[in-house]
Design a protein around this nucleic acid. Structure first.
Lengths: 345, 345
DNA sequence: CTGAAAGCGCTTACAG
DNA sequence: CTGAAAGCGCTTACAG
């Protein structure tokens, strides 16, 4: 005999009362409750989660699906751990636990998610690395699993998501460079399949056109979101017939590779070429010249994600009257030295 | 009615047979099995995990505990995701899932682990960020939960662990620097509470003494394992009365901050000061001068961790006859330009 | 080869 | 305020 039965026997009361005492139900004698709590602490009793889940129909766990292989603007080091803190601070209010579910590289993300959802290992899901067409969203909608997506998708119709303000960043970067006299502005971004690649480049195009600058597809350099991709971007940029005077990077760590390639070619970052990165990154502060980029609070993003998710869950919705929503997450410009020079002066 | 009951009804057979068919038990008519598998696929049936766990007494999940706040040599970006791939490749053989359990920053890691263990959310645990005295290890030993630790500890007596070869790295770094004529070699490391800080500095001391160089506590610079810590280390190094000609960093990303601080002071990394970092890191390749460091396969480390863990689990031990063990994980020197100069020539 | 039944550890109406 | 009992969804001896 073990578990709650053993504890009840030890206290010489019924398991029902033990359960009610432990779960903070009313209608339990305060004296009894104290005895139960003390005994549980002493014997190290904590209710078996499978038993609870089976009976209650909920796991009290929220899943955060991670795809290590995907290249996204998030795939930087501290991103997920930063968001995790904010998520947990909200989930803790409701005694919900966060579990990170890493999709194996050799497994299809859709199949993986389907399996996790069918097995009911979590009550709700947070997904990211959204594709422009993302079957996972249709799956979650159809299975009626509460979820929130970090990243938009054209799949699934109306569903809760939060996405970074790629439009704002692209627009603000272009505006800033144009104000400094740049007219030939390149951009380094991953393929259009990744939703953010599509949105970012599209916003860049529109921002240029607003300034009366013709969009030139040759200035869109498609590379991987990595240091290596940055190096490659530098390489391709140097091969262009008509050289741009500025470049916008969709992924901040590209700057490391780009700087390297430029220096090899005798081009000085921040002097012969203006560079603006995306998200502020601890490493970026130590680049020379320091990188102009955009700042956001990962923790606050985590909080927003959690609150949006809980708003879609019947059991918690009343605490979040704003309801499910779509949020464009703002980023703030952090001026560096990488684009400090001006072509007009 | 739902779940296996519904599926059985749909097929007009008993739930027992459905279960046996789905779980690949023998003594099921092949024709029946095919029908069951087809129907399950069609209806998207996957067994509810709580039901299975409760009945079987196992969750078929392995937990990887993460502490985002801890400063360790692992706390670099890609570390956990790299290890995860190797872990999963082994766990997949046994249809075990990996779940990452992030300990909230405001929760005591010991209490968090205790809760997860008591609730039986996983069958076994992988822990890391080991402290010299680590109550978690005593807890796991006492609770008889299979586990493996990434990192040694003086707690818990004899238990399965894998640790990076800090001795080897420290020794090899010192040997290399001494061979190039250095006698005043500094080291930047976190506090001795973190087990690796202790081991690393101790090995460094012994390596020096082997070369007849007196250990000088002033040359041990205690800083955080971060870029900022590297900056700080550079700062403190510059304040020393008698300047070292070389420095060993326990955390590779310190190099970013260190380079910056040195350049600010007109000291040229790799020319006025030799620098050796710890683990090879994608970003490091783009440092100028490139950082001499040590390479390891994160994936292979994950494989080793998983196999060591499974060897301690009765249900899987027979597949891993080598048994539970302690492994010192080797790293291979990757020469860079940061320590290329020689004092002797 | 298949079915009927027990029971894993819990929580929760229900009765008292 | 407490106890006895049902039942969450499964798997697995057991009987046939």
């Amino acid at each position: 005999m073990k578990g709650i039965r053993q504890l009840a026997k030890h206290l010489d009361i019924s398991i029902g009362t033990v359960s009610r005492a432990l779960n903070g139900k009313p209608d339990v004698n305060e004296e009894t409750r104290k005895r139960v709590l003390a005994a549980a602490e002493e014997l190290g009793y904590v209710a078996n989660q499978s038993g609870r889940s089976l009976r209650q129909g909920t796991t009290n766990a929220i899943g955060l699906m991670i795809e290590s292989s995907k290249e996204t603007v998030e795939n930087s080091d501290d991103f997920f751990l930063g968001v995790t803190g904010g998520l947990q601070s909200v989930l803790a209010r409701h005694k919900l636990d966060l579990v990170m579910l890493p999709c194996p590289n050799d497994e299809d993300p859709y199949e993986y998610l389907k399996r996790m959802v069918a097995r009911r290992v979590v009550d709700a899901m947070i997904i990211s690395a959204t594709q422009r067409i993302d079957k996972r969203i249709d799956l979650l909608v159809k299975a009626k699993i509460p979820f929130v997506s970090l990243g938009r998708s054209s799949s699934g119709g109306n569903y809760p998501w939060i996405d970074l303000d790629f439009e704002g960043v692209a627009t603000s970067a272009v505006d800033r460079l144009v104000a400094k006299g740049h007219r030939k502005i390149a951009i380094a971004a991953p393929s259009n399949d990744i939703n953010l690649g599509y949105i970012f480049v599209d916003s860049y195009r529109r921002a240029l056109e607003r300034h009366g600058i013709k969009y030139d597809p040759n200035l869109v350099i498609r590379v991987k979101s990595s240091e290596q991709g940055g190096y490659q971007a530098g390489h391709e940029l140097l091969l262009l017939d008509s050289k741009p005077t500025a470049i916008i990077l969709i992924y901040e760590l590209m700057a490391f590779g780009l700087y390297r390639r430029l220096v090899e070619a005798g081009v000085i970052p921040g002097r012969n070429l203006a560079i603006i990165g995306f998200r502020e990154e601890p490493r970026g502060r130590f680049l020379q010249p320091s990188l102009t980029c955009f700042r956001m609070s990962l923790r606050d993003l985590g909080v927003e994600l959690a609150e949006t998710l809980l708003a879609t869950m019947p059991a918690y919705a009343e605490s979040y009257p704003e309801g499910a929503r779509n949020t464009i997450w703002p980023l703030e410009l952090v001026p560096g030295e990488s684009d400090a020079f001006s072509l007009t002066s």
